[in-house]
């Protein structure tokens, strides 16, 4: 069979609008779920049981479910809870933010725990409060050790946006699908989509690896 790569050129604006939606979904997800993840992580390591238990259960529950199922849950539940229909984007975004906050929480938690306990104790021994010790001593060091994992997680979020396809959100994979329906050129279009995802994600992965080389603090 012959290839017809013009189909990509002809539909490029439509496809790029899909890609832009994917990027937006990923970016907003990261911006919202990272702080949420920090809060959950602090709950996870708290000494207070009424904070630690719910945070731990939330993280385990979310991490043992597939993202696609969480998306279905939200797609079904959000209209019931709010009592009126919300757009695809809102319900998908809510699902993504909640889902990925569990993953960010675990990254933040292991970052915090990678800081030696003596650092916290030294800070406390000089009269800093627990909150100050976290803010000025533990978190800055934790952040440095977890930046590579955070970058990797951003790539995973971007890959995850393809799942919004299942509820009909017009992200990149969905727009690609729509064009194949119309043009009957799946080979060119899906290979193109794969290439675009590959380039973006590879760039992200390489960036994350670079960070890994720099993450060390001289001791």
């Amino acid at each position: 069979m012959g290839f017809d790569w013009a189909v990509i050129h002809d539909n490029l604006p439509f496809l790029m609008r899909g890609l832009w939606n994917s990027v937006q979904l990923a970016a907003i997800t990261v911006v919202l779920s990272f702080p949420l993840g920090c809060i959950v992580a602090l709950g996870r390591i708290s000494r207070r049981r009424w904070l630690r238990y719910p945070a731990t259960m939330l993280v385990h529950a979310l991490r043992s479910n597939p993202l696609i199922l969480i998306v279905f849950w939200f797609f079904f539940l959000v209209p019931i809870l709010t009592g009126r229909p919300v757009g695809d984007f809102a319900s998908v975004l809510a699902a993504f933010v909640v889902f990925f906050s569990a993953y960010f929480a675990e990254i933040v938690r292991s970052g915090i725990q990678s800081v030696r306990r003596g650092q916290l104790e030294a800070a406390l021994s000089t009269g800093l409060t627990y909150a100050q010790a976290m803010r000025f001593i533990v978190l800055p060091q934790a952040l440095r050790s977890m930046t590579p994992s955070l970058a990797t997680e951003c790539v995973i979020v971007f890959q995850g946006t393809t799942i919004a396809y299942v509820v009909g959100m017009r992200e990149f994979l969905h727009t690609t699908f729509l064009v194949t329906e119309r043009t009957m050129r799946p080979v060119e279009l899906y290979l193109f989509a794969a290439l675009v995802y590959f380039v973006v994600c590879l760039a992200g992965s390489i960036f994350a690896r670079r960070l890994e080389g720099k993450a060390g603090i001289p001791r």
Partner: peptide, 26 residues
């Protein structure tokens, strides 16, 4: 605690701060 100074076996200086900032932080 701010009236009691403590020195640790493994120093526990804050690696991300300069020596001066280590001393002035508290």
């Amino acid at each position: 605690r701010s009236e009691i100074g403590m020195v640790f076996q493994h120093f526990e200086l804050y690696p991300h701060l300069s020596v001066l900032d280590n001393v002035t932080l508290a």
